[in-house]
Simulated scan of single mutants.
Amino acid sequence: METDDSARTDRAPSLADLARDAWSLTADRPRTLLGIAGPPGAGKSTFARALVEAVGEGAAYLPLDGFHLSNDQLERLALTARKGSEPSFDVRGYVALLTRVLDDTGHDIYVPDYDRTLHGPVSARHRVPPSARLVVTEGNYLACDLPGWRDARRLMGECWYVRAPAEVRQLRLIERKLAGGRTADGAAAWVATNDGPNGDLVEKSRERCDRIVSTIGMDMFNYRP
């Protein structure tokens, strides 16, 4: 297991390098899952989508956020103030879809997502087509040593951990909450009492990942192979 990108080469791998490494996971199987884990605000979603674009036609995107419980269910479970925490996801539903993605390679598979405008999950936003041999799935808790998440981790060919400095993550998270309509004080409080503890839990899963990736300074936009 690698502990740092720079341990292998004199430079950090580029997006093109990582895309080649990701595609190599499909060499001996019809389809494989690559997990992208990491704490809130690390850049997992941006990185995963850029990786899929870099790989091209043979890759598809599957975010964990589509399995976030609805606001009604969060209220029922008294988890409204802990939205985004580990128990606020339907991990069994997520594992069921990952299993189907690996087993059913002959049909379109539709994938839910989370809508930050609606503040809730939406169905069938993404699609895994039969041509997809690499499915990149990303989310905070993919490598956590917890019930349900262990099952998800076992289905993945590899799981990579995205890291970013704490101050960068905090700035991104506050900006996200401000964009979602919270006040400055409300955004700071949410990050301190919810995203912070969530990130602490995710950090403990780092050693269960196969590779650690830093996206700071990586050009993940307008990628051209």
Rank of each mutant, 00 (worst) to 15 (best):
29 R>I: 08
161 Y>R: 03
78 A>N: 11
39 P>K: 00
9 T>Y: 13
211 R>V: 05
36 I>W: 00
80 T>I: 14
1 M>L: 14
79 L>S: 04
84 G>M: 00
92 R>L: 15
218 M>Y: 06
70 S>Y: 03
40 P>V: 02
210 D>H: 12
54 A>Q: 08
49 R>C: 07
75 E>Q: 15
40 P>F: 00
29 R>F: 11
77 L>Y: 09
172 R>I: 02
9 T>H: 15
207 E>T: 13
84 G>C: 05
195 D>A: 10
157 G>A: 13
209 C>S: 03
219 D>P: 08
145 D>P: 06
10 D>N: 14
93 G>M: 10
149 W>Q: 02
179 A>S: 05
96 A>T: 09
5 D>S: 13
93 G>K: 03
138 E>N: 05
225 P>V: 00
109 I>R: 05
1 M>I: 10
89 F>Q: 00
71 N>G: 15
181 G>W: 15
123 S>W: 12
195 D>E: 14
76 R>K: 14
173 L>I: 04
80 T>M: 11
73 Q>F: 15
206 R>A: 06
52 V>I: 03
135 V>H: 05
4 D>T: 09
203 E>K: 02
131 S>K: 10
120 G>C: 12
217 G>W: 08
2 E>I: 07
110 Y>R: 12
4 D>A: 14
18 L>M: 11
188 A>K: 09
207 E>L: 11
23 W>V: 09
47 F>C: 02
105 T>E: 10
36 I>G: 00
188 A>D: 07
189 A>P: 15
148 G>H: 08
70 S>N: 08
66 G>M: 02
21 D>P: 12
30 P>R: 11
23 W>C: 03
186 G>R: 07
160 W>Y: 01
2 E>M: 13
65 D>T: 07
157 G>E: 14
136 V>M: 03
84 G>I: 02
39 P>A: 15
197 P>D: 01
70 S>L: 02
40 P>I: 01
176 R>L: 11
208 R>M: 12
46 T>M: 04
111 V>T: 03
186 G>F: 07
106 G>H: 10
76 R>S: 15
135 V>P: 01
178 L>T: 09
173 L>K: 00
191 V>T: 04
116 R>L: 07
12 A>V: 07
221 F>H: 12
19 A>P: 13
114 Y>A: 00
40 P>M: 06
33 L>V: 04
52 V>R: 01
222 N>Y: 14
165 P>V: 02
152 A>S: 06
80 T>C: 03
116 R>M: 04
93 G>D: 09
65 D>A: 01
196 G>L: 07
123 S>L: 15
190 W>G: 06
139 G>E: 05
175 E>T: 07
60 A>H: 06
62 L>K: 01
100 R>T: 08
179 A>Q: 05
177 K>G: 02
162 V>E: 03
214 S>P: 15
79 L>Y: 10
126 H>A: 08
62 L>W: 06
143 A>N: 01
197 P>T: 02
209 C>F: 05
213 V>S: 02
146 L>P: 13
92 R>S: 15
119 H>N: 12
145 D>V: 06
103 D>M: 09
14 S>Y: 13
100 R>H: 12
145 D>Y: 10
182 R>A: 04
69 L>G: 00
80 T>H: 09
42 A>N: 06
8 R>C: 04
116 R>Y: 11
158 E>F: 06
192 A>E: 13
183 T>K: 07
167 E>Q: 05
13 P>E: 12
132 A>E: 07
13 P>W: 13
82 R>H: 15
100 R>A: 14
141 Y>A: 03
12 A>M: 12
89 F>G: 05
